[in-house]
Design a protein around this nucleic acid. Structure first.
Length: 584
RNA sequence: GCGCCCGUAGCUCAGCGGAUAGAGCGUCGGCCUCCGGAGCCGAAGGUCACAGGUUCGAAUCCUGUCGGGCGCGCCA
């Protein structure tokens, strides 16, 4: 279905024929041969660099190879013209029937259009969100959630076997703080005066429910008792409540993970001891003293022998400690065990989506994965930069203390899940993102969500009008898929078809690069193409989609409208956004 | 000090080995007896921070410089 792949196959086949004919040496490495859309449409429909890439090894001039290639490609029935250009590109212009035929193919494929098998069923584990279970999610978490989920959808669409996973950080000191905070709310629920929440504890009102639930369940059995007695049970209850809250927040965004893995469970199962023992047996562990960081020595620095992972052997800058001074495992040690666990569950490809504050952690994790899987697995860490929450251009002041903290849920409830999801994908994940609460619901062209949905709604509107104009005529997809598309001859129509036909390639490149934001940019292009065509109809009556006097022409154009709608819906599906039929 | 990310049009950003570097906003000029003008078309605007290098070809890869952000043992 990917037209560029189709023509790459043709180019490769043609190169083989040239070799067989003795015009080229046999056995050339074709890995770098690419078939792509030319940047400038004036250069044709598809372009290949084959001659440029092969010239050196073939011992021939690029243009000479290009001439040979063009002569043969030009004879293909779908090719109208094969031209050599620039230093040795071969540009192909394809015949209209080839493009026209794309329309029924898209309509027949439906929103599954763009799917491919390049993933070959390889198992990919994508871990995203993994917010600490200490409170509701904030907007920054939302970005990671959306990026991870859209990437998962992209990979699934390209034939990977995807596991969506959430790692619950339920083992550290912060969940003890959570427990103490919840215990205080529990005392409050029992009627005690607790006053201001002390520094260092979580002040949020969301813990009041947890306190009340504890009071209902356990009565006053934890009142006046030493912390050692109540810490564990209160903690477990609080974590469960926080995870329920987080799952609700995610559900409001339409996000559902397949697997939740508990850090605490890894500790309990001895997985960390096992992973560290494994590294030790391979000689990657030693006891040593780290140098203090240069130029910025912490005040309380004192040299201390530590259990260290030889991360420098795997590309990291320094070796990393695995045990704290109280002999318990560091977070990193647990994370090594966790990634080993993912690998042992059968995932050779791992993706982690993290917040910008964890950027400094990437190298050591990659090193650990290399060490623990003996380089049999890959880890790609996608870092999501900050989200700046604005309202009419002014930064929204957020302070946990002052109670002006805006949660993800509040934003989703205010502007809608589709808007949040789309906006989170309008920037490369590496770049900081402005999210303006006022702007994202604005109905104008500078709001990409609106612009794309508007195109989809207009397409739906045309189809409704067509049902009236051709009362009684069948306009369902199977009818449209058999429309006589040779009526699609207007340059702008064929330009839109070319754009629609690029969708499978966009899916593949975005999936391969792990960059879901490319889908948002592509959809904006499709919308622009459709709006442009729409306006042609406003200017010239014969160019409208519906020409009441010519049913055959109208059916062909309606097929194109339907194909546009399908591609937009298909793209929105990857992003997790529901397409709208009308904007009112 | 070291590491990572960033520096592209007035602004916000795509492009990340291909041929004359793109989009939106903003500016200027056009298009409503019109399938939704919430839109469309056109113009002006760039030594792709700077300097070297690799390559047939560099905004894209490498090295260095300058400028901005983030991180740097017992937090997770």
């Amino acid at each position: 279905m990917n037209v560029f792949q189709t023509f790459r196959d043709l180019v490769v086949e043609t190169l083989g024929a040239l070799a067989a004919a003795g015009s080229l040496p046999a056995g050339l490495d074709l890995a770098r041969v690419a078939v792509e859309p030319p940047r400038d449409p004036a250069h044709g429909d598809v372009s290949t660099n084959a001659a440029l890439v092969l010239a050196k090894n073939a011992g021939q001039k690029p243009r000479a190879i290009a001439e040979l290639l063009a002569a043969r490609l030009g004879a293909h029935p779908d090719v109208a013209e094969a031209a050599v250009a620039g230093p040795g590109f071969v540009n192909l212009r394809l015949r209209d029937p080839f493009w026209q035929a794309q329309v029924p193919a898209i309509v027949a494929a439906g929103t599954g259009y763009g799917a491919s098998t390049i993933g070959r069923g390889i198992a990919v584990n994508i871990e995203y969100v993994s917010a600490n279970p200490t409170g509701p999610m904030h907007v920054g978490h939302g970005r990671g959630a959306v990026v991870g989920d859209a990437l998962a959808a992209l990979l699934a669409k390209t034939g990977f076997r995807v596991t969506r996973e959430y790692y619950i950080n339920d083992a550290g000191a912060q969940v003890d703080v959570l427990a103490r905070s919840a215990h205080l709310r529990y005392l409050e629920a029992l009627g005690e005066e607790i006053g201001a929440i002390p520094d260092g504890l979580y002040p949020g009102d969301y813990l009041k429910d947890v306190g009340r639930a504890l009071a209902r369940r356990d009565g006053d059995r934890w009142r006046g008792r030493p912390e050692a007695e109540w810490l564990a049970p209160v903690r477990d209850a609080a974590i469960a409540a926080m995870m329920a809250l987080i799952r609700e927040d995610l559900a409001a965004l339409g996000i559902h993970h397949d697997v939740f893995t508990s850090e605490r469970a890894l500790h309990a199962a001895g997985a960390i001891d096992e992973a560290v023992a494994l590294l030790e047996s391979r000689g990657h562990i030693y006891v040593g003293v780290l140098e203090p960081p240069k130029g910025r020595v912490p005040d309380d620095w004192e040299p201390r022998p530590q259990t260290l992972f030889r991360a420098t052997a795997f590309g990291d800058d320094v070796d990393r400690p695995l045990r704290k001074s109280d002999a318990s495992w560091t977070y990193f040690a647990a994370d090594i065990a966790y990634h080993r666990d993912k690998f042992r569950r059968g995932c050779p490809v791992m993706i982690d989506v993290w917040g910008a504050d964890h950027k400094g952690y990437v190298k050591r994790m990659e090193a650990a994965v290399a060490a623990v899987t003996e380089r049999a697995a890959t880890l790609d860490v996608r870092i999501c930069n900050l989200v700046h929450l604005l309202d009419k251009g002014e930064p929204v002041k957020m302070s946990k203390r002052a109670g002006t903290f805006v949660t993800l849920r509040e934003v989703v409830d205010e502007v809608g899940k589709g808007v949040v999801r789309f906006m989170m994908l309008t920037r490369s994940n590496e770049a900081a993102l402005d999210f303006d609460l006022a702007k994202v619901v604005e109905q104008s062209k500078d709001n990409p969500v609106f612009y794309v949905q508007y195109a989809h709604a207009r397409a739906a509107s045309v189809r409704r009008n067509a049902a009236e104009a051709f009362a009684g005529a069948a306009l369902d997809d199977s009818t449209l898929a058999s429309a006589d598309v040779t009526h699609l001859t207007v340059a702008e129509e064929l330009a839109l078809v070319r754009l629609l036909a690029a969708w499978p390639r966009v899916v593949e490149t975005a999936a391969t690069a792990h960059e879901p934001h490319r889908v948002a940019y592509y959809l904006a292009e499709v919308a622009a193409g459709f709006h442009g065509l729409w306006n042609k109809g406003n200017e010239t009556e014969s160019l409208r989609f519906i020409v009441a006097s010519d049913r055959a022409l109208s059916l062909a154009r309606l097929a194109l409208v339907r194909a546009t709608q399908i591609v937009i819906a298909s793209g929105l599906a990857v992003m997790g956004v529901d397409p709208v039929e009308e904007l009112r």
